[in-house]
Amino acid sequence: MHGPASPGWLLVALCAATGAYCLLRMRSSVEEQRRAAGGEALMGFGMAAMAVPAAVFTPPSWMWPVYAVVFGAAALRALWAARGHPHHLHHLMGTAAMVYMAVVMAGSPEAHHHAHGDTGVPMVTGLLLVYFTGYVLLSGIRLIPGTVAGSTGAVAGWGDRPELARACRLSMGIGMLAMLLTL
């Protein structure tokens, strides 16, 4: 992604840490949580890999189509899973955003949006920014104590704690916003 190196490394660290926690959540005894955690781990590590500052490492040209194929397959899986669980629609949006970013990066040289004198934000990028901004705001509100319906107060295992899963999703939403802004 384009942009300064320091914020890029912070984004890499945030996304990698989120991906690592999601891998640990895959040990949950709840099957649906394990499935969601697997998709979220893929997103976290994929976002971390895409966020490595271009000044440090410029991926080979074949890397972007690979990202598009991997996240395209993940999008198809999320679409299939969304039949019974609407939560997977967000996974579909996230994977579709990753495919979009990979396609844009594959078809553009460094700083292409400045080189051609383009002004404004492309419509797809703008729509994704609106979606993820809303998602981040809603996720942040859900982290406020007392706003979650059905909280029992029972102590769950550290991998099954819903507030940690929400915080994980919130951090990935913030990361997605940052990546879309630098696109």
Rank of each mutant, 00 (worst) to 15 (best):
A5K: 01
S6W: 02
P7S: 03
G8N: 02
L11Q: 04
L11G: 02
L11F: 02
L14V: 15
A16P: 06
A17C: 11
T18A: 14
A20D: 09
Y21H: 05
C22A: 15
R25F: 10
R25I: 07
S29C: 05
E31Q: 15
E31V: 15
E32R: 15
E32Q: 14
R35F: 12
R35G: 14
R35Y: 14
A36V: 13
A37L: 13
L42F: 14
M43K: 11
G44D: 15
F45A: 12
F45H: 12
G46R: 03
A48I: 09
M50W: 03
M50P: 00
V52G: 00
P53M: 04
A54C: 05
A55P: 03
V56I: 07
F57A: 01
T58Y: 00
P59I: 01
P60T: 01
M63G: 00
M63W: 03
M63P: 00
P65S: 03
Y67D: 01
A68V: 00
V70A: 08
F71P: 01
G72V: 07
R77A: 13
W80F: 09
A81L: 12
A82K: 04
A82T: 13
G84N: 07
G84T: 07
H85N: 12
P86N: 08
H88Q: 08
H88Y: 15
L89P: 02
L92D: 02
G94M: 13
V99G: 01
Y100K: 00
V103N: 01
V103H: 00
V104Q: 00
V104A: 02
G107N: 04
G107C: 03
P109R: 01
P109T: 01
H113E: 10
H116N: 12
G117F: 09
T119M: 14
G120A: 14
V121S: 08
P122G: 09
M123K: 05
M123P: 10
L129E: 10
V130K: 09
T133F: 14
T133K: 07
L137D: 09
L137K: 05
L138P: 05
G140C: 08
G140D: 07
G140W: 07
I144R: 09
P145Q: 12
G146L: 09
V148Q: 13
V148W: 13
V148F: 10
A149M: 14
G150H: 06
G150S: 08
A154W: 05
A156R: 07
A156C: 10
W158F: 10
D160F: 06
R161G: 04
R161V: 15
E163F: 13
L164K: 06
A167P: 07
R169C: 13
S171W: 11
G173W: 10
G173V: 11
I174H: 04
L177K: 08
A178D: 04
A178N: 05
A178L: 12
M179G: 02
M179L: 06
M179N: 01
L181V: 08
L183D: 00
